[in-house]
Nucleic acid binder design. Structure first.
Lengths: 203, 203, 203, 203
DNA sequence: GATGAATGAGTCTTCATTCAT
DNA sequence: TATGAATGAAGACTCATTCAT
């Protein structure tokens, strides 16, 4: 009899896969490495996810579902756009803190050699970006489309810059750090974007 | 007969390698693919660069040399810190525009499965970040170290967010776009960082 | 509720197995493919037939039983040897028409990698050939054993040449075709074998 | 320095592949088994033939080239059609004796699970059959197309019935056997086909 | 300097089968 | 009787690298 805390093989593969992919990069990790770590048979990756790329798709799906839900939730709040952005940053940072591996993999893996997965990610990503831009537009007057194409991604990138550099800089990422990070990014972005409406340019 | 414009086999490998790595990711590209494209023999990669990872190291070296030179140059200018930042963004963008493949590869490839290259990149990257932070400190009062660890990378990330998303969003990246991008990022960042010194918070 | 026309799972596996084996070859078909097509659980192949090779043995048994019965029946008829041969060809063709998949599989699969099945088929096959040769010997004087070893198989092969080529030539195989085929083969063979007793050689 | 009798790795793979495929069937043989027997590295199969199916295609090409050359040569002879047929049988049997493995593989392997190879064989096969039928038509009056579709293949099948049964019957196949076989088949076929022109039917 | 045949380790995936339910 | 999750072995193939020429 399996105990209550027992995690299913399917889930173990996803979690361990995300962890290894986050550490070493998708294509540098073998399925055998993942399943060994998960304590299941090699063939279970194909059995459950239809293969290594299917596992990556499952990870991406998980991430974009989680972040999409947050964006939608924040969108629906009855608060100012600025507050929404702060709230969005905070909630996304919390989610990232709780799902570091899945997030890092979803953000950084660009499997251009697997078109199917590549297009899949592209689609999910664009949906996310669009929803975020909709929040910005509630208050800020971002007419120029080319700016939109810069500001939206820039925001997204700021958010995840932590992921980007924690890999390289090996910073400690406790909950206090995440909070500080969220605040700083919100300040930086809100002040930055506010400046667009000012006449006088800095420098 | 080799003309004046003839590029050496060694250089052809690097350029074609950077192009393919940028398109498909380092580990998704085989040396054979690179050398075929470059029109040289397979074994020349090992011959010139000591192997595939050696080629990546050479690309990284090239990029960090180029960006380091720009940072140093701008650092030495006798202008305000704000203007230095604008100049830095402008110059780096120009460099990226001229060396898209090498830049993208250098920024996005995280070869954690090859510790030697991974550490190599980490070292070069940290040197760059440090030099940039020194410019910020000239004027802005960024006391809190954890903020430093956020703002520096955030700036770096903003700069390269273009790379990140051009892969996914397939934007046109002509020289006009680059200029607009540089301006927007400079505005965003300078306004954002200026806000840190303001008492009143937005939102 | 199972109706009268319902076919048992066991039989469904055999029929669908024969069909797929006939189309794609024994080793190119997986048990999962067979059971999916049959609408039963994967493990039923092992359950009913003791495994994939057991299923093949069952198909072979079915075929050699059917053809053996025909040969015995024709042998016992009180007609001339020539007529027996015509009748044999006709009856076998009818049986093949009604059991195309089982016949094709039984004739063409040579599972040398599964000695048990290979020997099983060899034994059944030799019994068939022997019974056919006995019919020939009733009238024709085929003394030379090496000729026996040629003529018997040649007859058998002529009979099944239709199977052999229908795979490649994609002929229509309606009942009219089968009748024409049976007649032609009978003519060819009876004329051919009759010639053995003639002195003068053709050509 | 390699001796004069040394066979190239490429050729060793083909010969040993043909031998193993002939014995155990194409899909029952692993590439590793072939290359081990050939004394070369596993990857050479892909290197030279582009994979296991490429090796099969090479074997087929070899066979159909050899048999096609013979058919063309005999076609061009200035002798009666009957003599051409006898000569054809004799020459093909000689070729088969000298290339037993390649012939058996080419005749019996029907790789329907590899459409590319399947179609490749189909095309080569049809070309062969067509050339043979042209010889028949020189003298014999085979008007009915459906008979053509039977007689041509039947001849082909008679020829190769030896292959078919030597697998099962384990006959000795020395040069004396081959000669006897060629004679018997020629007699059988020429008498059989001659009978088509006779009014009276046997039986 | 440059070639390309050859290597061997490693990859993902598929398969028939089993066992607890 | 029937299920389907799980197994372990084996499959073909790719890759970076080397070495004799």
């Amino acid at each position: 009899m399996k105990g209550r805390l027992e995690v299913s093989p399917r889930e173990r593969i996803l979690q361990n896969g995300a962890e290894l992919f986050a550490q070493k990069g998708f294509s540098a990790v073998g399925v055998r490495e993942v399943t060994d770590k998960a304590g299941v048979n090699v063939s279970m990756t194909s059995y459950y996810y239809g293969g290594k790329s299917g596992l990556l798709k499952a990870i991406l799906t998980d991430f974009f579902k989680k972040s999409g839900d947050i964006i939608k939730e924040v969108s629906g709040l009855n608060i100012s756009a600025d507050k929404k952005i702060r709230e969005l940053v905070k909630k996304l940072m919390e989610m990232m803190m709780a799902n570091q591996n899945i997030c890092r993999v979803s953000i950084f893996e660009m499997p251009f050699d697997i078109p199917e997965v590549s297009e899949f990610k592209e689609q999910l990503f664009k949906e996310n970006i669009k929803m975020i831009l909709d929040i910005f537009k509630e208050k800020y007057n971002i007419r120029d489309e080319s700016v939109q194409l810069i500001v939206g991604p820039a925001f997204y990138n700021l958010l995840f810059s932590h992921c980007f550099f924690s890999n390289i800089l090996h910073q400690d990422t406790d909950s206090k750090y995440y909070k500080k990070f969220a605040d700083t990014i919100s300040d930086l972005f809100l002040n930055g974007i506010a400046g667009f409406n000012n006449k006088k340019k800095i420098a």
